[in-house]
Simulated assay, not measured.
Amino acid sequence: MQSKVTQAMTVIKIILLGLFLSLGKTYAQDQATPTKRTLYFVVDTGSIRKDGRPYEIVSGEKLVTYKLLCPCLYRGQYPMFFRKEDEHAQRNYREREIRSLPVMTFKSLVELVKKEGNGMNQYSVIILEKVGKKYNAYRTQFSGVSLEE
Rank of each mutant, 00 (worst) to 15 (best):
V5M: 09
K115I: 10
L101W: 02
V11H: 01
K67Q: 12
I14V: 07
F41W: 04
R139K: 15
Q7R: 14
N121R: 01
L109I: 01
Y138M: 09
S124Q: 04
V103Y: 06
E97N: 01
H88T: 12
L19E: 03
E87L: 05
Q31D: 12
Q29E: 12
V42Y: 05
Y135K: 03
Y66E: 00
R37E: 14
I57N: 00
I15D: 08
F41E: 03
K84Y: 13
Y40W: 04
V110T: 07
T26M: 08
R53P: 07
T38C: 11
Y93M: 01
N136T: 07
D86Y: 05
S47M: 11
Q122H: 09
A89R: 04
G117F: 08
I57S: 07
T45D: 15
R83E: 04
E85N: 14
V113R: 02
V42I: 11
M80T: 13
L109Q: 11
P54S: 06
Q90L: 15
G24I: 05
I12N: 04
K62Y: 13
I48E: 03
E85P: 03
C70F: 04
I48F: 08
V43K: 03
P71T: 09
P102Y: 05
T35G: 09
G18N: 03
Y74F: 11
L128S: 10
S108R: 15
Q122P: 10
H88K: 13
E87F: 02
D86P: 02
E87A: 09
G52E: 15
E116D: 09
T45I: 03
Q90R: 10
F142I: 05
D51F: 02
N118G: 04
Q77R: 14
D30E: 12
